[in-house]
Amino acid sequence: MMSVHTSRGPGRIGARWPAVRRPATRWIARRRPGTFLVLMIATVLVMMPFLWMLSIAFKPEAEVFTSVPSMLPADPTFENFSTAWTSGNVGRAMINSTMVAGAAVLVNCTFAVLAGYAFAKLPFRGSTLVFLLMISTAMVPVAVTLIPLFLMTKGFPLVGGNDLLGQDGTGLLDTLPGVVLPHLIAPLNIFLARQYFFGLDDDLGEAARIDGASELTTFWRIYVPLARPLVAVVAIFSFTAVWDDFLWPLVVTSSMEAETVQLALSKFLTGGNVMYGPAMAGAVLVILPVVAVFVFNQRSFIAGLSDGGVKG
């Protein structure tokens, strides 16, 4: 029996995707036809937008605007994908977003995990207060910090023509480091890490310390190998936070060279006349990595999602 409110054990992350208990392996369609039917209809309805996306992505332009849309393209083509990739700038944007997301994943997996570990295993005077202060920032709406962060990015010292005081230049505006700046360490990841390490045994670290291991070695050699599921969750969260972000890149970038994926997609709208074929092909390309990560890490995804909250 899994308990959401009390469980603090290791392996909790990853075990949350409610388990399908083994003994009852009767196929749902046979056992509960009514439930099966309702779930089937709901799932098909929910999947419908994705099916249309795929359909239009493979249709030639003339086929998109027919009065009776058909799901299966009569004359499937890859043309939309190459249009989206090159003239839609999705190719460049995907490289940009990958680099920015990669940086966010790396920094989060190092410093957010390290901080969460320290809060759980190496408390110091005032650490609870520091923790609460850091976590409280997760509740602040994006709009509140948007303008200050924009000004700080613009005034970043010694880059983009700025002097030591951040004057005279454009700082990190319209650069990839500027895009990643607010995403380097997310408070939620520190929270998740702290919760996870609380569930790991203190004795493991004690044993290592008695053997003369330094704190950093204890963390790196003893606890990190036990925290793989946690690192997966933090990596996924950091990646999607950057990959999905729209408002910040919209504000902080202006050129095609620094464009991120979501921005590139939004550019298909300009001019009022939407080229749905390339737009949907672009959407497929942008959604695909996220779906792939999800399919291979379903448990981590769900666990992180439920952990962020049900625990509270």
């Binding site: 388990a19 399908v20 196929w27 999905d244 729209f246 942008v286």
Partner: peptide, 23 residues
Amino acid sequence: RSMRGIGLFRAGLFLPRIVPLAA
């Protein structure tokens, strides 16, 4: 319910949650 096939429905219904809003 703990029945075979249910995981597929759960995953399908969950999919919109993970795809980017702009896309």
